[in-house]
Amino acid sequence: MTPLDNVTAHLAHPSQSTRTRHPQDVATHRRGPTLPPHRLPHLPGQVAIPEQLRAAVGPAAMERFNTAPAAELERALLGCCRSLRWARRVTEHRPYPDLEALLAAADEAAYDLTPAELAEALAGESLTLLPDGAYSAAHTALSAAHAAYESRFGHVFVICLDDVAPEETLDRVLTGIRSRLTNDPEEERPLAAEELRRLAKGRLTRVVQHFSGQAGH
């Protein structure tokens, strides 16, 4: 297993495949109207703190990110945003002088996604994380809310929780789903895209931070 394979294994959604779909496949792909509740308890409950992660990213980590083989880096980046075009653009624009430049480039690439590419990325997302030890009624409520959202919009609910304390996660997710369920699809699409961009930046920071542990190996 290569260092970048280890990076992919440490992403926020390790159970989610990085398999990509072509845009024409996404156009006809529709997920089922319900989500099996048993998927919820098995998701990891970690919440990233961006400031802490960014502080751990030094020059050695950026150097390893900038010199990693392109094909391996693309695979790791697909764990941040499930758009092949996004992953390729971030890879092709190397080298980056620092993390802030990398995150700015990732943002720009995300803003340039076409509707079909955004649908591709959203189709690859997994369910929102719950804190470890959340009570069973919370899983039931969240499962019902997820099912209603997916039935309305055709993809799972996405929300970035990087700045949310673990004890506030459940309320933030449920409040967010219930609020956004009132949106029209045209209103929800840019909101989902913004949350996806925020998720991608947090995951990308974790990818680069992981290179700190690979330095010298």
Results as ranks from 00 to 15, higher is better:
Glu150Asn: 11
Ala105Pro: 01
Ala12Asp: 06
Ala110Gln: 12
Thr18Cys: 07
Ser179Tyr: 10
Leu129Phe: 12
Arg54Asn: 12
Val156Cys: 09
Asp5Gly: 06
Arg178Ser: 11
Thr114Gly: 03
Cys81Leu: 13
Ala121Ser: 14
Ala60Leu: 09
Pro44Gln: 10
Ser179Ile: 00
Arg85Gly: 04
Ala200Lys: 02
Met62Arg: 01
Ile159Trp: 00
Gly154Met: 11
Ala56Gly: 14
Ala87Gln: 07
Asp132Thr: 11
Arg30Leu: 13
Arg198Ser: 03
Phe157Ser: 03
Leu102Cys: 13
Leu53Val: 15
His29Met: 11
Ser126Asn: 12
Arg21Cys: 02
Thr140His: 11
Tyr111Gly: 09
Ala60Arg: 14
Tyr96Gln: 10
Pro44Phe: 07
Leu102Thr: 07
Gln46Thr: 10
Arg189Cys: 03
Arg64Gln: 13
Ile177Trp: 06
His29Phe: 14
Arg189Ala: 13
Arg94Asp: 11
Tyr111Val: 03
Ala138Trp: 03
Leu77Lys: 03
Ile177Gln: 08
Pro44Met: 11
Glu194Phe: 05
Asp163His: 12
Asp98Ser: 08
Ala119Pro: 02
Arg75Asn: 15
Ala147Gly: 14
Pro69Phe: 08
Ser15Cys: 00
Tyr96Arg: 09
Ala71Trp: 01
Ala138Glu: 13
Val158Thr: 11
Thr205Asn: 02
Thr28Ser: 12
Val156Leu: 14
Leu191Ile: 13
Leu4Pro: 03
Arg30Gly: 01
Leu142Tyr: 05
Asp171Tyr: 05
Gly79His: 07
Gln24Thr: 10
Arg85Pro: 02
Ala148Asn: 07
Ala119Thr: 00
Pro44Ile: 09
Glu150Phe: 00
Leu204Tyr: 02
Arg64Ile: 08
Glu72Trp: 05
Tyr135Glu: 13
Arg19Trp: 04
Thr128Glu: 12
Ala144Pro: 01
Thr175Met: 06
Gln16Asp: 09
Leu191Phe: 06
Arg85Asp: 11
Arg203Trp: 06
Leu196Arg: 08
Pro131Val: 04
Gly202Asp: 04
Leu40Met: 12
Gly154His: 09
Tyr96Gly: 10
Pro44Ala: 11
Thr34Arg: 13
Asp107Ile: 00
Pro50Gly: 10
His139Ser: 02
Ala121Ile: 08
Ala55Val: 04
His42Tyr: 09
